[in-house]
Simulated assay, not measured.
Amino acid sequence: MKPLIIDAHGSNLEIGRQHARGSLAMRDDVLQWAQAAVSDYPSDDETVRRRIDEVATAWRDLTPGTLEQIEGMAEVYEIPRDSLLTAVLGTYLRSLARTRGPAEGCTTFAVTGEHPFLVKNRDNDRHFLPMQTVLRVRPQSGHPWVALTTAGAPGVHSSGMNALGLCVADTHVPSSDVGPGVPRFASMMHLLELCATTEEALDYLGRTPQMGLGNLTLLDGAGSAAVVECGYRHTKVVARAGPGQDPGGNGVVTTNHHIHPVLSACLLEPEDGTPGANSRARATVVADHLSKTASVASDPDAALVAVRELAGSHVGFENSTTRAGSLCQHGKDLKAETISTAIFDPVNRSMDLCLGRPCTDPYTRIPVAPHR
């Protein structure tokens, strides 16, 4: 599947409009997403209305650009703004209702060394695959960035990299530690626009109220990597690798659970132990791989092949059914599967993107800035 690349610039309102114009062919998919969210969380429900209004009020102060992008997209798609906002807030509303998490999730990892890479396998319902878009932005102020995102979603709705080589990717974590802070897709956009290094990004995340519900993996051009677990009441750095860190650490990994004791106590996991069992198995597979890698291959092409192979690996994959530990997730019994893999190269400022299954589907190389 060939990626749709949308180049946008200017104010957040105009970026939202350009995003929607560029993905207008996906308008029906966006509408269905919004309608499903409104069906689950109707605005005439007093509790839902109060929670959405609370978030909108907080965002006007914390991240007004996010609301402006939603307004611009809603205008062009001709979809009610509140319906699009409700869709974007679906996981937040679900966690406030203490609904248990999904059965599967995403995997992100960073490898450090001479040729650092940040990798994300995005696992979701397959109907989101046609809505995957590449958004390349020159904001009114701040650093230009490129992101893999979702049509109809503001900010960086998965992973991205800025023109200075700072990369970030998220994973969803169902948690009760949530509140009307800055959502991950907005935090990722802001830190890409404001920050040049992992240290600067950690400072931003530490001083900005987060909405919660996930982990962020960071990597910069110098090979400095970190994992941040984000909650509304608690945001914690739980792993570091790269220059100045433990020489035995060859990278970092995060999946769909928290490991910090304060945050792990807030996990919303189903009684049968998933996504916890699946999430922990995938994290172990990557951690084992990183621990056995003394250094990233001196040949950058070989290093890229190695991370592609890991992203497409099928540990425990039997009879076309995914078992715990498989990074490439697909099978008839899964509610979600791997719909994309993004590999960010902070040295060469490019993203290798596979839309579909990384075990079989091709990659496309996309630079952070368009060719002139």
Rank of each mutant, 00 (worst) to 15 (best):
M1N: 11
L4T: 14
I5K: 07
I6E: 13
Q18R: 03
G22P: 07
M26E: 14
D28M: 13
D29T: 13
V30M: 05
Q32H: 15
Q32G: 15
Q35I: 10
D40T: 15
E46A: 07
T47H: 11
R49D: 14
R50T: 12
D53E: 15
A56R: 11
A56C: 14
T63E: 07
I70R: 09
I70Y: 09
M73Y: 06
M73H: 10
E75T: 09
Y77P: 12
E78M: 13
R81T: 13
R81W: 09
S83N: 13
L85A: 13
T86F: 00
S95H: 05
A103T: 13
E104G: 10
T108W: 05
T108M: 07
F109Y: 08
A110L: 00
E114W: 06
F117N: 01
F117D: 01
K120Y: 02
R122K: 14
R126Q: 14
H127V: 14
F128E: 11
F128Y: 14
L129D: 12
V134N: 00
V137D: 04
R138P: 11
P139N: 07
P139L: 04
G142I: 01
G142N: 00
H157T: 12
S158G: 13
S159G: 13
S159I: 09
G160R: 01
G165F: 02
L166V: 08
L166R: 03
C167W: 02
M189K: 02
L192M: 00
T197N: 01
T197I: 02
E199R: 03
Y204P: 01
T208K: 00
P209D: 03
N215E: 08
D220S: 04
G223Q: 01
V227G: 00
R233D: 12
A239G: 04
R240D: 05
R240L: 06
R240Y: 04
P243V: 08
D246L: 04
G248A: 09
V253I: 03
T255A: 09
N256T: 08
H257N: 09
H258K: 07
I259M: 11
A265V: 06
L267V: 10
L268W: 01
L268P: 02
P270G: 11
G273L: 02
N278Q: 14
S279D: 07
A281N: 02
V285F: 08
D288K: 12
L290E: 04
K292L: 15
T293R: 15
P300F: 05
P300T: 07
D301A: 15
V307P: 01
R308F: 04
A311S: 10
A311H: 01
G312E: 03
F317R: 03
S320R: 08
T322Y: 02
G325Q: 02
C328R: 00
D333K: 10
E337R: 10
T338C: 05
T338D: 06
S340G: 10
F344A: 09
R349W: 07
S350P: 08
C354S: 02
T360P: 11
D361N: 00
V368H: 03
H371K: 15
